[in-house]
Design a binder for these strands. Structure first.
Length: 473
RNA sequence: GCCGCGUUCGUCUAGCGGUUAGGACGCCGCCCUCUCAAGGCGGAGGUCACGGGUUCAAAUCCCGUACGCGGUACCA
C-alpha cells in the first residue's frame, strides 16, 4: 500500500468520548501500520456549539493516549476561502446550483411530504432556473443556498468493514452545501478538506454511514476519487443503549481521573471491534501497530464492559516499569512518607489494585496509623485474648535482626509455635493492627517496609485498644 | 413511514462450507497461602436471533421476518 493519509476529525462540542477515542486510535494505528500520515482536523463550522477549550481538552486527551498526529490541527473555521473557492467552482461547472426557497417554503414541503407518509426530498426544481436568472437574483441580494446537483445514477459506497452498498439513482436529494448566510455545511467541508488533504481512507463511526453516499457524490463532483471507507460499529453502554454519562464514565479524562492507565485504555478500546486474529489480548501500542488491519475490524456494535477494562488495567498496573508507575501515581493523593519506602510499598501493593486510585488508597497506611478498623476484622480477631499475643509479637519483632521480611517471618513463626498457635492466629490480628483491614500484601513484607518503630507502635496501640474495650466493637 | 447497517456463551470476540463452535472478562471450584490479590489448574455458560432456501455438508452463501441501532437538517 502506498502511504495512506487518514484523519481524525472531532467537532469541539464536547470532550473526547471513548467512541471518538477509539476512532482516533484506529486511524492512528492504520497510519502507523502503513507508514502513512495521521492528520488532525477540528470540525468547528458550527460556531454556536464549538468551544476552544474543548479543542484543547480533546488534544490533551489524545496526547495522554499516546496518539500523536503528523499534521494539524487544522481548524475548519479558518479555511473559509477554500470552501468558497470549491463552491464557486462547483457552481461554475454546473455541479451545484442556487436554490432560492425560503426555510418556510421548505418546511411546508416537508410537512406536505409527511402528510402523505413519504420522506421529504428536495425536488430539485431550482435546477431549472437559468444561469442568467440565477446570477441576477443572487446579485439583487435574494437569499439562496447552494445545492449539489446529484447525477441520476446509482452511488456505490465501498466500505472495508461494512462491505459494498449500492444506493439506487434518486435515493438522495440535492442536499445543501452552503447556507444562505454563506457558511459551508458539514458534508461539504468534509469532502473539500478530504480532497485537499489527500485523504485516502476514512475511518469513522457507523453513524456516518448514511452520509457516505452523499460524500461519494460530492467527491465525484469535486473531481476526486472517493476514499476507502471503514465504518466502525457503535460503542454502547452495558445496557445496550448508546454510551453516555449515564453509564458512569464515558469521557477519556474521566477514566484518567479514575486511575486508568492510557496503555490499558488503548488496549481495551482496540479490542472493541478489532481483534488481531489469534487469541492475543494484551498488547502494547507498538504490537497493535504491527498487527492492525481494516480487514480484522468487525461490523457490529459492542458494549463497553467496565469490568474487563478494570481487569486489563490491573494487568498493566503489575507490568509497567516501576519508575513509570510511580510517575503515573503522582497526580493522586499519596501518603507523606519517604520516597524509597513508598516505592517499595507500591511494589508490594501493585498487584492488588485495579486502578491508580485504588492503589493510592491502599498506600495510605504508609503515612498515618489506621484510625478505623474493619468491623468484620474486629469481630473475628479483635477479642481481648489477642492482646498479649500482639504485645509478644511487638517485643519479638523489635529485637529481630536484621529487620528483613524473611527473618521477621522466622521470628513470627517461632513465636506462634511457642504459644501453640498457628501463624494465622498471630498474623491476622497483626494485619488488622497495622492496616485496619483484613486484606493486604504478605504481613512480614509490609512490616519490613513499615519499619520497626511504626510496627511496634501500631501493634501495641491495637493491643491496648482491644484489651481495654472489648465490648466497644 | 422511508433508507441503511447490525445480530456467535451475560460481555468482548475467533470462525470467512466439513471444528467436540476456540479464547478473554465475569462467575464457581481447587492449588498456592499469614489474609487478599496475582499466578496455575479445572468447571458451568452458546438450539451461532428466527424462518426458508442453495449444497453431500451452513455459524459461515442467498432470500425473507423479528429485534436493535443509525440516518432522514440551511447540526456535526
Amino acid at each position: 500500500m502506498t502511504a495512506p493519509r487518514v484523519r481524525f476529525a472531532p467537532s469541539p462540542t464536547g470532550s473526547l468520548h471513548v467512541g471518538g477515542a477509539r476512532t482516533a486510535l484506529y486511524n492512528w494505528l492504520f497510519a502507523r501500520r502503513h507508514g502513512g500520515a495521521f492528520i488532525l482536523r477540528i470540525e468547528d463550522t458550527d460556531v454556536e456549539r464549538s468551544r476552544r477549550e474543548l479543542t484543547d481538552q480533546i488534544l490533551h486527551a489524545m496526547r495522554w493516549l499516546g496518539l500523536d498526529w503528523d499534521e494539524g490541527p487544522f481548524f475548519q473555521s479558518e479555511r473559509g476561502s477554500l470552501y468558497r473557492e470549491a463552491a464557486d467552482r462547483l457552481l461554475a461547472e454546473d455541479k451545484a446550483y442556487r436554490a432560492f426557497e425560503t426555510p418556510e417554503e421548505l418546511d411546508a414541503m416537508k410537512s406536505a411530504a409527511k402528510a402523505i407518509g413519504s420522506a421529504f426530498r428536495y425536488d430539485g426544481s431550482a435546477r431549472a432556473i437559468p444561469r442568467e436568472e440565477s446570477d441576477r437574483r443572487a446579485a439583487s441580494g435574494e437569499k439562496f443556498v447552494l445545492r449539489l446537483s446529484i447525477p441520476n445514477e446509482p452511488l456505490v459506497v465501498n466500505d472495508a468493514v461494512q462491505g459494498r452498498t449500492e444506493f439506487p439513482a434518486g435515493a438522495l436529494d440535492d442536499f445543501v452545501l452552503v447556507r444562505s448566510d454563506g457558511r459551508p455545511l458539514y458534508h461539504f467541508t468534509v469532502c473539500v478538506d478530504d480532497v485537499a488533504m489527500g485523504i485516502t481512507h476514512v475511518i469513522r463511526g457507523v453513524d456516518h454511514l448514511p452520509n457516505a453516499p452523499k460524500h461519494v457524490a460530492l467527491f465525484r463532483a469535486l473531481g476526486a476519487p472517493a476514499p476507502v471507507f471503514a465504518h466502525l460499529g457503535m460503542i454502547l453502554g452495558a445496557d445496550g443503549k448508546k454510551l453516555s454519562k449515564r453509564h458512569g464514565a464515558a469521557g477519556v479524562e474521566e477514566f484518567q481521573a479514575q486511575g486508568v492507565l492510557p496503555d490499558a485504555l488503548d488496549n481495551f478500546l482496540a479490542l472493541l471491534g478489532w481483534s488481531p486474529g489469534d487469541d492475543k489480548e494484551r498488547m502494547t501500542l507498538l504490537e497493535m501497530v504491527s498487527l492492525f488491519s481494516l480487514e480484522r475490524i468487525g461490523p457490529s456494535a459492542s458494549r463497553f464492559d467496565h469490568e474487563k477494562l478494570l481487569w486489563l488495567n490491573g494487568q498493566y498496573l503489575q507490568e509497567i516499569p516501576a519508575a513509570r508507575l510511580v510517575e503515573m501515581l503522582k497526580p493522586f493523593h499519596l501518603p507523606n512518607c519517604d520516597a524509597v519506602l513508598l516505592d517499595r510499598a507500591i511494589m508490594l501493593h501493585r498487584s492488588r489494585a485495579r486502578t491508580l486510585v485504588e492503589l493510592a488508597h491502599a498506600l495510605a497506611i504508609y503515612g498515618d496509623d489506621p484510625r478505623v478498623f474493619e468491623p468484620a476484622g474486629l469481630k473475628k480477631f479483635g477479642g481481648p485474648e489477642a492482646a498479649p499475643l500482639l504485645r509478644a509479637l511487638a517485643e519479638r519483632l523489635s529485637v529481630t535482626e536484621p529487620f528483613s521480611h524473611s527473618t521477621l517471618e522466622e521470628s513470627g513463626r517461632a513465636l506462634a509455635a511457642e504459644k501453640g498457635r498457628k501463624l494465622g492466629d498471630l498474623a491476622q490480628p497483626a494485619r488488622l493492627a497495622l492496616t485496619g483491614v483484613l486484606a493486604s500484601p504478605p504481613l512480614f513484607e509490609m512490616i519490613e517496609v513499615l519499619g520497626k518503630e511504626t510496627t511496634r507502635r501500631r501493634l501495641l496501640a491495637f493491643a491496648d485498644l482491644i484489651a481495654r474495650e472489648p465490648e466497644a466493637h
